[in-house]
Design a protein around this nucleic acid. Structure first.
Lengths: 247, 247
DNA sequence: TTAGGCGAGTCGTCCGACGACTCACCCGGC
DNA sequence: GCCGGGTGAGTCGTCGGACGACTCGCCTAA
């Protein structure tokens, strides 16, 4: 049992026992040190762990506070990691994104406001007209974010934001196949917006899944391709070949 | 820009640039300190952040290494947080679990080996016979883990393990309604195993979703219930009322 | 050849100090 | 009386040095 572990356990116990409620402040570091019997360095490392996980928040000159323990905040800490993941890991994340975003789209379709539908079509318009790739990335994120937010689960929304944060998948726009990719992407956005406009959850889910699958498809083609063509090895029953995109 | 941020950025840059490949060792702390112009304390806090996120691994007496950057490992770091989440956050996580585990079950059904089906039914047998609640929790985790592993996405499997790690949801087994909960849970496991045995992805997905929804239902009843009966406010089209469980 | 010791290298922890920041309190001006 | 700014105690951020614990390659001796 290392000193940092002891401090970590002590802090977690104080939270778990309800001793310190969300939003409340911990005693100062010096006091916690004597309570746990560790040095300030070890205590600070333990605090750093919890702050990385989004459990506590340390404010310079003020003190250490328990965060609201909202899963959406917790999830956000991952954005630091996602840009470091290799391609193989990204594909696993994209499969999760496909499933969850499909789900969120269905939820959004079931409860969409007229404002949302108008907004989605407006974003689709601007995406089709965009020339700057950065601009395109921003619009794309806004489009999907609006849908996820309407899905009603903030954790899902936050998780999708993290997965999407690596805007790098738009680098495929600079590859040789930029044009068909772009057209298929625009069509996908239209299909999703239309399904949500019709308040058709099943259609929205299908359209969203196909849209993400399209990204998966193009991204998987950037793999070194160790043995087989990715198309010949679909990864499951839901893996639909993006219509109109395959060569 | 704080000193810790500087060190964090430096370390991340070394990884992102491919300067240090996965599995390789960083220079010793002292050298990194002079390179980034920070003290050893600050460098160690930055290293602690990355090790919490699963990006690096620090071995006592040996050095700091870049991890394999496997999303499954990264996700695992969350288990420390999950048991601190309040009930409301748990419900958001359960919705994600419902969606992802439903997906994994469909995948598993599409590619199930005979061994898997045998194993699932054996686990279901033991769960029905179990009397110890800890034993029951272990069997339940093993059952769902086997399915997720067969789903083929290690990240999903790891994520589900984290969500499930809070075995606490089995505390509902000690509530007044322990008996119907237990019966419904057993029936749910049977239904999932049977669907996978029939290699029926759609049925497996539905059965898995219903099984998790059942947990959501009972857990949501433990809420302070601010205004309405949870049953009167379903959270989406997929939210099926667990058959045979409702009062 | 091999088992064991040994020592250099590295991380884990502690201590003391000082600067930076926050916040509540106090005081003077309006 | 009200408001604004100064001020000081409290707290976190960072630094430097020191020493113990652990790892691992090397070397010695059986």
């Amino acid at each position: 049992m290392t000193a940092t572990d002891a401090a970590l356990g002590g802090l977690r116990a104080m939270i778990a026992s309800g001793d310190i409620a969300p939003g409340q402040r911990f005693p100062p570091e010096a006091e916690l040190c004597v309570r746990f019997g560790v040095s300030r360095s070890s205590l600070r490392e333990a605090a750093r762990i919890l702050s990385t996980l989004g459990v506590v928040e340390v404010r310079h000159g003020s003190g250490m506070y328990v965060s609201r323990l909202d899963p959406a905040d917790v999830v956000r800490g991952f954005s630091l990691t996602v840009d470091l993941l290799p391609l193989e890991g990204l594909l696993q994340l994209l499969e999760i994104r496909r499933v969850l975003e499909s789900h969120a789209s269905a939820q959004a379709a079931a409860r969409a406001s007229d404002e949302l539908v108008t907004r989605l079509h407006a974003l689709a318009d601007r995406m089709e007209a965009a020339v700057d790739l950065d601009e395109l990335g921003r619009l794309d994120r806004a489009f999907h974010e609006a849908i996820c937010d309407a899905g009603g689960n903030p954790t899902v929304s936050s998780l999708m934001e993290v997965f999407r944060s690596r805007g790098g998948h738009y680098r495929i726009m600079t590859s040789d196949h930029a044009d068909p990719v772009r057209r298929a992407s625009d069509a996908g956005h239209r299909a999703i917006a239309a399904a949500i406009g019709r308040r058709d959850p099943a259609a929205a889910a299908t359209a969203a899944a196909a849209h993400v699958a399209q990204t998966e498809y193009w991204l998987s083609r950037m793999k070194p391709a160790p043995d087989a063509d990715p198309v010949a090895a679909p990864r499951g029953p839901e893996r639909s070949d993006p219509a109109g995109v395959s060569p």
